[in-house]
Simulated assay, not measured.
Amino acid sequence: MQDRMIAEADALTPENPFQIHTVDTGHMGIQLRPREVAGILDALV
């Protein structure tokens, strides 16, 4: 469902598409892989 929602949003604003980042974990990603999540967030700045 999230892939569909992202695709629909990208279709509405093609000049501003989502950037997708995948972390190999469940909903506890921030606790289980904090360095990986911090690296993704740091790259956004």
Rank of each mutant, 00 (worst) to 15 (best):
T25A: 15
A11P: 05
D42P: 00
A9C: 10
N16F: 10
A7W: 02
P17W: 06
M5R: 15
I40N: 00
T22H: 15
V45M: 12
I20G: 08
M28F: 09
Q31V: 09
F18E: 03
D24C: 03
R33H: 14
A38Q: 09
L32H: 09
T22N: 14
Q31E: 05
V37W: 02
L44D: 02
M5N: 13
Q31L: 12
A11F: 07
N16C: 14
T13I: 05
P14Q: 02
I40P: 03
D24F: 04
I6A: 05
L32E: 12
V37D: 01
T22M: 11
Q2H: 07
A9E: 05
P14R: 02
I6M: 03
R33C: 08
H21F: 14
A7T: 09
G26Y: 05
L12W: 05
D42C: 06
E36M: 01
A11V: 04
M1K: 06
V37S: 01
A11L: 07
M5P: 02
Q19C: 07
R35A: 14
A7R: 12
R4G: 15
Q2T: 09
L41G: 02
T13Y: 12
F18V: 02
D42N: 11
T22L: 10
T25H: 06
T22R: 15
G29H: 02
V37C: 01
D42M: 07
T22A: 13
E15A: 15
V45A: 15
I20A: 06
D24V: 07
A11K: 14
V23D: 04
I6H: 01
Q2W: 06
M1N: 06
M28H: 04
A7D: 11
G29Y: 02
D10V: 07
I30W: 11
G29M: 04
L12D: 11
N16T: 12
M28D: 08
H21P: 02
D3Q: 11
P34Y: 06
V45W: 10
R33P: 04
